[in-house]
Design a protein around this nucleic acid. Structure first.
Length: 523
DNA sequence: AAAAAAC
């Protein structure tokens, strides 16, 4: 048990810590803070919930508080994989840099650049950033990174998953080699090891005592249902959420479209729920998360954007509406509950189609969660019941379905107070032959107006020639403007109508016949 | 089978 005052932090920083109410350092803090204060590199193998953020924020604040930033010359960078995590780090700065003159700015995408640029111009000590926006601003000449004294990389293995490693590498190279680096990752796959050997100097390796694969504070349950029909799954979910005493809970889905549908279904049935995923605009994401944190929102329906790292101290329930395809995602998801010594419960709805994924999860967690049986739901009736018109649009997993989801009418689905009882063991309920999910949507083929599709084709055809003449820049800003405007997202809609008249760009009046034919792209 | 991240 180490108390914060023993770690060598300055009185100002210690005061800020005291104000938060923390007195005892976590193992990762206890080990990393003295090393970081001494100016040495740290390689921290630790997951969220171990106090990692404070482990780098505190020494960062302490070491930077003596100097002052110049315009466009930040002194430190903290990189995080998602916008929400970056924001979380910024909150940590707000707490711990309180008594200092340090300034910081959150550089993330999805929000206007104006304030970010203004802060850079004025001079800001710490950039807390996602890689894309940081590089974007750098390329626009908004800052120099030659004055960076400390660089922090958080959740490096997740950055790897997300394909950020080249960006991280690039940012490393833009900062001076003599900088101090604090590098954190929950796991150390080879690619991450390569990065650390290339960019860290004689780092002190610190391993936070590996928390058990899943914490003992989390009780896990499996809820098997006999069909993977989305409507049946939603019914099961609502029954489950309804019978639990949910103070606040997160429902995880595998797809963004499903997140929307499930959130809507819960709302329609009177639950206080809201969706969060990467297609929602950033201010909306932030507000939803803030509401959930403050308790103003009870149920967060989320994609895996919220699976890792988010630190919400007191989540009572996690519901896995879908089984994660990657077992480690499951561990991260349920890790949103049972935090800070609190008790949590995690449920996973399992359909016959999930066998493979479930096996992987069970193998990883090395536990055998108790099985619950949802009584009182007639799954066969849901599946085979009278087909309503809007049902199909609800299942049209592509684009926005106009007429809401099958769940729009409360009476449509036999919901209600299904009772849940512990099952003796394996359950005999045989799965009615589950209609193959993907086949059930011929709508998934999309008819595309000829010129648009043609433009898409045209890229493939013309590109080699263009490339030979003048290599494109990586980031797309300087693409040949006369060719393919239409594959840029924002332009697509506009072009659809226009190109009909204009023909296909780049072909003048001589459009090959095959480009004029309607094209069907299969999903 | 997916999600995330820049305009």
């Amino acid at each position: 048990m180490t108390e914060f005052p023993q770690l060598g932090l300055s009185p100002t920083t210690l005061q800020a810590v005291a104000d938060t109410g923390y007195t005892t350092a976590t193992p990762i803090q206890e080990q990393a803070i003295p090393v970081a204060l001494a100016g040495r590199d740290v390689l921290g193998i630790a997951q969220t919930g171990t106090g990692k953020t404070a482990a780098f924020t505190l020494p960062l604040v302490d070491r930077l508080s003596t100097g002052r930033a110049r315009a466009r010359m930040p002194r430190a960078i903290v990189l995080a994989p998602t916008r929400e995590l970056a924001d979380q780090v910024a909150e940590s700065f707000a707490k711990y840099a309180k008594g200092t003159k340090l300034s910081w700015v959150l550089l993330i995408g999805g929000v206007s650049m104006g304030d970010q640029v203004a802060a850079l111009n004025k001079g800001v000590d710490v950039l807390i950033a996602t890689p894309g926006r940081l590089l974007d601003l750098f390329e626009r000449g908004k800052m120099l990174l030659t004055g960076v004294e400390i660089m922090v990389v958080d959740e490096a293995d997740r950055m790897l998953d997300m394909g950020f490693i080249p960006d991280i590498e690039r940012i490393f190279k833009l900062t001076p080699p003599r900088r101090q680096t604090l590098f954190f990752s929950a796991t150390m796959p080879p690619e991450i090891t390569r990065l650390t050997t290339a960019f860290l100097k004689d780092p002190t390796r610190i391993e936070a005592s590996r928390p058990a694969m899943t914490a003992d504070t989390i009780t896990q349950y499996i809820v098997r249902i006999p069909t993977s029909d989305p409507k049946a799954k939603r019914t099961a979910l609502r029954a489950l959420v309804g019978r639990e005493d949910v103070r606040n809970g997160i429902v995880f889905c595998n797809r963004k479209s499903e997140v929307d549908i499930v959130a809507k279904s819960l709302k329609t049935h009177g639950f206080d729920a809201a969706p969060i995923h990467g297609d929602l605009d950033q201010s909306h994401r932030m507000k939803t998360l803030a509401d959930f944190r403050s308790g103003a929102l009870k149920i967060l329906v989320a994609s895996d954007v919220a699976a890792r790292g988010l630190d919400i101290p007191d989540v009572s329930h996690v519901f896995n509406y879908d089984v994660s395809h990657h077992a480690d995602d499951y561990v991260h998801r349920i890790g949103r509950t049972g935090r800070a010594g609190k008790l949590g419960q995690a449920f996973m709805i399992v359909t016959p189609a999930d066998d493979k994924s479930l096996d992987k999860v069970l193998k990883l967690i090395k536990k055998d969660p108790e099985e619950l049986v949802l009584d009182g739901i007639d799954f066969a009736a849901i599946k085979d019941g009278p087909r309503r018109d809007d049902k199909r649009s609800g299942e049209r997993g592509r684009g926005r379905s106009r007429s809401s989801t099958g769940a729009a009418t409360p009476s449509a689905e036999p919901v209600d107070i299904a009772t849940v009882t512990a099952a003796p063991s394996s359950q005999e309920a045989e799965a009615p032959r589950s209609r193959s999910r993907r086949k059930a949507r011929p709508e998934a083929s999309v008819e595309v107006a000829a010129p648009v599709a043609a433009a898409v084709e045209a890229e493939a055809i013309v590109e080699p020639v263009e490339t030979a003449r003048a290599p494109r820049t990586e980031r797309g800003a300087d693409r040949e403007p006369h060719l393919l405007q239409s594959d840029r997202r924002g332009d697509r809609k506009a072009d659809k109508g226009d190109t009909q008249r204009q023909g296909v760009r780049g072909f003048g009046d001589d459009i090959p016949a095959f480009l004029r034919r309607p094209v069907v792209i299969r999903a």
